[in-house]
């Protein structure tokens, strides 16, 4: 009796899909600290948090949608488009709230369009949002002719997105934490969260039980689009300039974060907290490798390796955890 109980106790953490990413965060922290003691400094941690914020906010939206069973490849393009819209409006005399609402509204509108094409047009979201991504990029490049768009006016309110709070820690990290917390809570502790998981896990079952599958998925698309818009605003508020190529590749990084954090590509599995932690892990590794003095070109290869390793861990651990749950 005692050994089996002990085994149970030891296996409790395996019930949580975040276990792979949390373990990785701790292991890498140990390695990087060993290589360079500065890794444990508050400045470094703040730097990681800032770096994690933009990717993390997008990963929160993308993982939310992925759990509902759909992809969003247009987040990188929305990231650029929404912040560019805000810059243009601010430069042309619109007020700060107007610009912010318009930017977030653009994110929501793209989300709705993605939902319409995917759900009404019945085109896989992978294709629908890939098309959306190219369309938005094309429009941005055509409008700007490739030139970055600069904020030409002073907008003190922008500090709510990215001003430093203490030392190197910025408001953006707070936004990230708050959003991750809120959406994790929605997913785990509300009826709507239950529907999200059901819709992603088995749309037919959800539909048979009376869940409005299309509505739930549409909300997911809108959340994803708006999170990308918010991340864009945060980047813009700090650097006051938006490149038309800003956010290229972010969509894949966000999906990678979601997967490292325990989301399944087929939907229904994963948590928002896991994706958020994975965004932190990705930033930790980027920063840690630099502090450790590793040849800089290794980073991307390292990320690929990590994605595969954590992917395997998640798969195995998920099975073990379920069996002994």
């Amino acid at each position: 009796m005692a050994p089996s109980q002990l085994k149970r106790l030891l296996l409790i953490p395996l019930k949580y899909r975040e276990v792979g990413v949390v373990t990785s965060i701790i292991v890498f922290a140990g390695i990087f600290y060993y290589l360079n003691e500065q890794f444990a400094s508050p400045d470094t941690l703040a730097s990681i948090a800032t770096l994690a914020a933009e990717l993390g906010i997008i990963a929160v939206g993308v993982s939310f949608l992925m759990i509902a069973g759909e992809f969003d490849l247009s987040v990188g393009a929305v990231f650029a488009a929404s912040s560019m819209l805000a810059v243009w409006m601010l430069n042309n005399g619109y007020s700060f709230p107007e610009a912010v609402i318009a930017a977030l509204g653009l994110g929501a509108a793209v989300g709705l369009a993605n939902a319409a094409v995917t759900l009404i047009g019945r085109i896989p979201s992978f294709i629908a949002t890939l098309g959306m991504m190219w369309m938005i990029r094309g429009v941005l490049l055509a409008i700007t002719k490739g030139f970055p768009m600069r904020l030409e006016v002073e907008v003190p309110e922008l500090s709510i997105f990215s001003a430093p709070i203490a030392g190197d820690l910025r408001v953006s990290a707070v936004w990230f934490l708050a959003l991750a917390g809120v959406f994790h809570f929605i997913l785990v502790s509300t009826a709507f969260g239950n529907w999200i998981q059901a819709v992603g896990g088995s749309p037919a079952t959800a539909r048979a039980l009376g869940v409005n599958v299309n509505l739930v998925k549409t909300v997911g698309f809108v959340v994803s689009g708006m999170s990308a818009a918010l991340a864009g605003l945060i980047a813009m508020s700090r650097f006051k300039v938006v490149e038309p190529v800003a956010g290229v590749g972010l969509e894949l990084e966000a999906i990678a974060s979601a997967v490292i954090g325990g989301c399944s590509l087929t939907g229904g599995v994963g948590t928002v907290a896991g994706a958020a932690l994975a965004a932190f892990l990705v930033s930790e590794i980027r920063t840690g490798l630099i502090l450790a003095g590793a040849p800089a070109y290794w980073y991307i290869g390292f990320m690929g390796f990590l994605l595969i390793v954590v992917g395997i861990i998640n798969l195995r651990v998920g099975k073990v955890g379920v069996r002994y749950g």
Binding site: Q38, T50, R286, T287, I290, L291, Y297, Y299, I300
Partner: peptide, 24 residues
């Protein structure tokens, strides 16, 4: 002088260079 991959993403470029300055 060492080469540092700063990517085309402005936030990443900033934080990457900042970390490098901290380490060096």
């Amino acid at each position: 002088p060492e080469k540092l991959d700063i990517t085309t993403d402005i936030t990443k470029a900033y934080e990457t260079m900042k970390s490098y300055l901290r380490a060096n």
